[in-house]
Amino acid sequence: MSIHVAITRRVRAGCEADFQQALREFFQTSFGHRGVMGASLLVPPPGSDAREYGILRTFRNEEERDAFYDSPMFKEWDERAKTMTEGEPEYRRLDGLEAWFRSPGPPPPRWKMALLTWIAVWPVSMIVAALFAPLLGQLLPKFLFAGVVAGGIVIVLTWGAMPLLVRIARPWLHGAKTSTNIPEKR
């Protein structure tokens, strides 16, 4: 199971563009590290005086995450980043529903995550079941058919429905202080 980590850093005034450029360069280098599955940068909204930047990283597993953060490559980046940031970075592991609703700040209220998930699951479960029923409904025992349908639902939710719905509902989920997500290589 992949591991998602949210890192928040406060960038020094006047260093914002340098930090973003340096981080993008580090992103490209870091993708060569075994176990790194993706990274995204969340920046303050245009015109905002906020200097909080979010970095979202996904790793294959806990061992790869730990190896990445213990690597000389990361330690070198961390020292460079300290010259452009204030204070210590905050690290937070995202689990369960939080992984779909990841952001550098606190996650949305659980009721919002649950409601948005339900809005996605309901039609997806009906559509997936309807698509598989003519193909496999009579060939498989009911418990196996239910497993195939559940797998189809998970695939559609993970790579389609939830990323789309979370992007559309971001202002509602996080309120007015939502950062702009500039995705990097995944």
Rank of each mutant, 00 (worst) to 15 (best):
I3P: 08
G54N: 04
W100L: 14
E76H: 15
E63H: 14
W172S: 02
V43M: 05
A169Q: 04
T58G: 04
D78W: 10
E86F: 09
P171M: 07
A6W: 04
T117P: 02
C15N: 06
G96Q: 08
D70K: 08
R34H: 14
P46Q: 06
C15E: 09
R24K: 15
L157V: 01
F27H: 00
I155M: 08
P134Q: 00
V166H: 01
V124K: 06
P109T: 09
T58Q: 10
P134T: 09
A17H: 04
A114M: 12
R12K: 11
K112W: 00
D66R: 09
E25W: 08
P141F: 04
P141I: 03
E90Q: 15
E52N: 11
D78S: 12
V43H: 01
G151H: 04
I153P: 05
E88P: 05
E184W: 05
A150V: 04
D18I: 11
L139Y: 14
S179G: 13
K75S: 04
M73S: 11
K142V: 13
P107T: 06
P44M: 02
F132E: 02
A169P: 06
F26E: 06
I127H: 04
P104M: 12
V154F: 13
E64A: 13
R92K: 08
W122L: 13
G137W: 00
T29Q: 12
R110V: 13
L42T: 12
A150N: 03
R10G: 07
P45V: 09
D95Q: 15
H4K: 12
E16I: 07
R57N: 05
V121T: 05
G175V: 05
M162S: 03
T85E: 02
P104A: 12
A13F: 11
R65D: 03
F26S: 03
F68Y: 05
I55F: 02
G96W: 07
V124Y: 03
L115K: 03
E184N: 07
K142H: 13
F132C: 08
T83C: 06
R57F: 02
L42E: 07
M1E: 13
M162T: 03
A13D: 10
E63R: 15
H4T: 13
A13T: 13
S2R: 14
G151P: 06
M84P: 04
R9G: 00
R60G: 11
D70I: 10
R186F: 10
L97V: 11
I168T: 15
H174L: 14
W100N: 10
E52V: 08
V36L: 05
V148C: 00
R102Y: 10
E88K: 15
P183C: 11
A150Y: 05
L115D: 06
R9T: 09
P109Y: 08
G152T: 03
L144Y: 14
G175K: 03
I182F: 12
R186H: 12
K177N: 14
F145W: 01
R57S: 07
V36G: 01
V154A: 13
P123H: 07
A146L: 09
